[in-house]
Simulated scan of single mutants.
Amino acid sequence: MAFTLATWNINSVRLRADIVAKLMGEQAPDVLCLQECKSPVDKIPRDQFTALGYTHMVARGQKGYNGVAIFSKIPMVEAGAEDFAQLGHARHIAGRLENGVTIHNHYVPAGGDVADREVNEKFGQKLDYLTDMRDAFHASKPEKSILVGDLNIAPREDDVWDHKKLLKVVSHTPIEVEHFNDVMASGGWADVTRNDIPDGKLYSWWSYRAKDWDAADKGRRLDHIWATGDIQNAAHSSRVMRAARGWDRPSDHAPVFATFDV
């Protein structure tokens, strides 16, 4: 079975329901994973998405913050949710498709503004979340699985607009990249996007603060699609839909796509 998956930090699914519907209508991914939904589950505008063929949903939500959801045209059942770092946040949901593939949708904490856990509690929470992810994958090696989401780390030098300038900026610091790579290694994950697009600058996030984000192009690749080793070779056709960053009342993130023949 071939299916196309997209992941997108939507920055409020209720505020931006129309551009979610636009993506569903124009791009029609079989599975759409959203982060930062900022909505209780019962307030997600599910009927609008069901009308477009997304008849299956698994989600975790909370009012005004965080929140993750997976919408699917393919039959899907919930496959668990974890509270990594015991934050009490809605940051993870998993769904299992009828072909047995499990999709993990994560919204990793952003980590605040200062890359020092001694003075910034949020940075410590981010590192602890990643450590718990690593330990969970060490304990139970995932198989036939995909991990997506806003992981809030741009790991490679060409995942940011200026490597040297961002080395001390949260999302690209060496300690975050080390934690990111540890998580990937612990589960035997492969970076699907970079397997398909191995070279060159690649971003999925551009700050709202930039007056002309497109021309300035000071982006970071914070949104990721991974696959376990047993299905990584089934992935192809990766892309970042940069144009969506320029839609009406956009998220500051762009959707990331990949197709799997599993």
Rank of each mutant, 00 (worst) to 15 (best):
V169S: 12
D135F: 12
R16C: 11
P142R: 07
S39E: 06
D191Q: 04
I74C: 03
G229E: 13
A215K: 14
R46W: 03
V262E: 05
K126M: 07
D230T: 03
D199K: 14
L147C: 12
S12E: 10
V160C: 08
F260K: 00
T55Q: 12
A79N: 09
E78I: 14
A90V: 06
D132G: 11
E178S: 11
D182C: 09
E78T: 14
A85Y: 08
R14I: 12
D248R: 03
G200E: 10
A85F: 08
K122H: 14
H89V: 04
V58E: 03
K126A: 06
K168C: 12
S186V: 11
E121P: 09
Q27D: 15
A190D: 06
E98W: 01
M241W: 13
K22M: 04
V13W: 05
N195Q: 09
N233K: 15
S207I: 09
V108S: 03
E143V: 14
D230R: 00
D191P: 02
D212G: 11
R221I: 10
K164Y: 12
I44A: 00
V177G: 10
A190Q: 05
P75V: 00
Q86G: 11
R220Q: 13
V177D: 09
L202V: 06
Q86S: 11
L222H: 13
I146D: 10
I44F: 02
K141A: 07
A227K: 05
